[in-house]
């Protein structure tokens, strides 16, 4: 059972690192440092996906969260005036307690939800080692075990098949949601043509305090 011990140790190490990164996210004064800690946490989550034999999800986790959401966060930080974290970035006093309560409630809801998850096909859920299908074929195993083994071995394909058959509606709704997000962002952030036209077109960035342009675009 050497593998199980190695796996446990790895899990504990990754979980501990993830916790540290999460703490760093909350406690960092500097916003970019906080975002970096968050990236570290995303990476730990990707490692956990690998340990759960979901390498497709691990790759997606890195692609979406580290490759895209982190960039979005950084650009978001560059939009704010407070990039150094010198001013108060943390919550003010009266908001601390409600924040703590809300966080604990969310934690409780997640723990309850994950532990009582019902798998959609009616088979026993993945949680709990006894019900986990083996990657090695066993005699007399139920049909869902073979199905799940296929899902583990070629996750991209099975996810695709499920998307296009059982979850077709959810799939299209996801497309609609993405479009809505795009349209919403554009509508919120975009200034009207008239306003934009009045801005000097060559200024790429303006300092927060002075009106003097620091850099000019290539055009």
């Amino acid at each position: 059972m050497g593998e199980v011990v190695v796996a446990r140790i790895l899990f504990l190490a990754i979980a501990a690192l993830g916790l540290l990164a999460a703490l760093g996210t909350v406690l960092s004064r500097n916003l970019v440092h906080a975002a970096l800690h968050l990236v570290g946490f995303f990476f730990c989550v990707a490692c956990l996906f690998v340990m759960l034999e979901a390498e497709f999800l691990a790759a997606v986790q890195v692609l979406i969260y580290i490759g895209a959401v982190a960039i979005l966060l950084m650009f978001g930080i560059m939009l704010t005036r407070n990039t150094r974290g010198d001013d108060a970035t943390s919550l003010s006093g009266p908001w601390r307690l409600p924040g703590l309560v809300a966080g604990l409630c969310l934690f409780g809801a997640l723990v309850f939800g994950i532990n009582n998850a019902v798998s959609p096909s009616g088979a026993s859920p993945w949680a709990g080692e006894a019900a986990r299908p083996s990657l090695v074929e066993r005699e007399g195993e139920p049909a869902w075990a073979a199905e799940r083994r296929r899902a583990v071995e070629d996750m991209g394909r099975v996810v695709g098949e499920e998307f296009l058959t059982r979850y077709a509606m959810a799939f299209e709704l996801a497309g609609l949601l993405l479009t809505a997000a795009l349209v919403g962002a554009v509508a919120l952030a975009h200034r009207d043509e008239v306003g934009a036209a009045e801005l000097p077109p060559t200024v790429e960035a303006l300092p927060a305090d002075s009106a003097e342009p620091v850099g000019t675009a290539a055009s």
Binding site: V32, L36, V39, E55, F56, A59, V60, V62, L63, I66, G67, A68, A70, I71, M74, E153, D154, M155, G156
Partner: peptide, 25 residues
């Protein structure tokens, strides 16, 4: 040769913009 090798490839190559941003910042 992981079964989702191409997603892996795209995923790890998408880390470098983050490094470049951090370098500039």
């Amino acid at each position: 040769d992981p079964p989702s090798g191409l997603v892996y490839l795209i995923a790890v190559s998408s880390i470098s913009p983050l490094g470049i941003f951090l370098a500039g910042w």
